[in-house]
Simulated assay, not measured.
Amino acid sequence: MKSRIAALTTTAKGVPDRVPIVGRAVGQLVRVNLLDSATRLAAQAFLSALPALFVVAVFAPAAVRENVVSSLRDQLGIEGEAQQQVQQLMSAGHDDVAQSFGLIGALVTLLSATALSRAMQRVCERCWELPKSGTRVAAWRWLAWLAVWLVVLVCQVPVRDGFGAGAWLGLPLFMLLATALWWWTQHLLLGNRVRWYPLLPGALLAGAAMTGLGIAAQVYLPGAVSRSITKFGPYGVVFTSLSWLIVLFTAVTLAIALGRVVAEEPLVARHLEAWGKRD
């Protein structure tokens, strides 16, 4: 038995040497610190970006507010009493909202939400082993990325529904939207230090992951939220939503990290280089 275990261990250790892409993938995930990075992103999204979404949505037209509620329900499982509270906040008058938040409070909330942008930038820089960008160079990029990310979050429900046509059109459209978002995200937050085409594999992986998790969320989250509320009361929504955000950002971080490994494979790199020269 001991000799068999030793043989299996030796075989496992030799896999990265025989399959170079496996060794590079393992090294990449260790360098990025996958779970730690994903947890930081999820915490920043929950604590800063979602409040910023509320601040923006309450001043927006009714259609936008409805899309926000639908997105929170589909992506985070916020329903029942929590959904009613969100709808009450969204339906409040602009004067009441302004008194509640205040101009300074709204600005502080929006600026603090760039913590998510900064965390995402650090993940991209780790994946591509690049030094941090200067604050003057990166500051406007944080705001730009946050604004686009919030817009995509609001619009994802009608896109996934194919604008009324159904999932047969909605899922391919959402896949294209998610791929475009994460392709542009890497290029923007890396400060144009990596060309477009090497970033494409990571964007495709992230788009596929977001599409699959979007389907899984509609199946899994309603029951998970109900069970969590039964066990923990109103706090169950918080626990389940934060846990699901960790899953989402783990998938994104994994996709971007492995995207670099795929892009540097000789065969893939040659094709990407050829496409780049055509343009």
Rank of each mutant, 00 (worst) to 15 (best):
37 S>Q: 08
26 V>Y: 01
72 L>H: 10
113 A>V: 09
225 V>P: 09
68 V>Y: 04
105 G>S: 03
199 L>P: 00
242 L>G: 07
36 D>V: 12
147 A>E: 02
253 T>Y: 06
226 S>E: 13
208 A>S: 12
196 W>V: 12
220 Y>F: 14
230 T>I: 00
135 T>W: 15
187 H>G: 00
148 V>F: 14
137 V>R: 12
243 S>M: 13
129 E>T: 06
43 A>R: 04
261 V>K: 05
109 T>K: 02
154 V>S: 09
267 L>R: 12
111 L>A: 11
272 L>E: 01
81 E>I: 05
241 S>T: 11
99 Q>P: 02
53 L>F: 05
141 R>W: 06
135 T>G: 01
54 F>A: 11
11 T>W: 13
125 E>P: 03
243 S>A: 15
233 G>A: 00
5 I>V: 04
190 L>M: 15
143 L>S: 05
37 S>N: 05
202 G>E: 06
194 V>E: 12
199 L>H: 07
275 W>I: 12
226 S>Y: 04
86 V>P: 15
268 V>Q: 11
157 V>G: 00
172 P>W: 02
230 T>P: 04
10 T>H: 03
38 A>G: 01
41 L>A: 11
140 W>K: 08
103 L>E: 13
37 S>D: 01
253 T>Q: 03
117 S>D: 09
260 R>G: 06
209 A>N: 02
46 F>G: 05
76 L>H: 04
108 V>E: 12
169 L>K: 07
53 L>G: 15
23 G>L: 03
54 F>K: 05
207 G>M: 11
213 L>C: 12
29 L>S: 04
203 A>P: 04
175 M>F: 12
239 F>W: 10
77 G>W: 05
143 L>E: 02
198 P>N: 14
62 A>H: 14
120 M>N: 03
209 A>S: 12
26 V>T: 15
278 R>T: 11
126 R>V: 06
212 G>A: 08
135 T>F: 14
220 Y>L: 14
229 I>F: 03
44 Q>E: 10
207 G>S: 13
148 V>L: 14
72 L>V: 13
217 A>P: 13
118 R>N: 01
233 G>N: 00
142 W>N: 07
53 L>C: 15
117 S>H: 10
166 G>N: 13
127 C>A: 13
277 K>V: 08
191 G>Y: 13
77 G>V: 09
203 A>L: 04
222 P>W: 06
115 A>K: 02
42 A>R: 05
178 A>G: 04
246 I>S: 08
254 L>A: 13
262 V>A: 15
99 Q>L: 11
56 V>L: 15
7 A>T: 13
190 L>T: 12
203 A>N: 02
240 T>E: 12
249 F>L: 02
197 Y>A: 14
112 S>D: 08
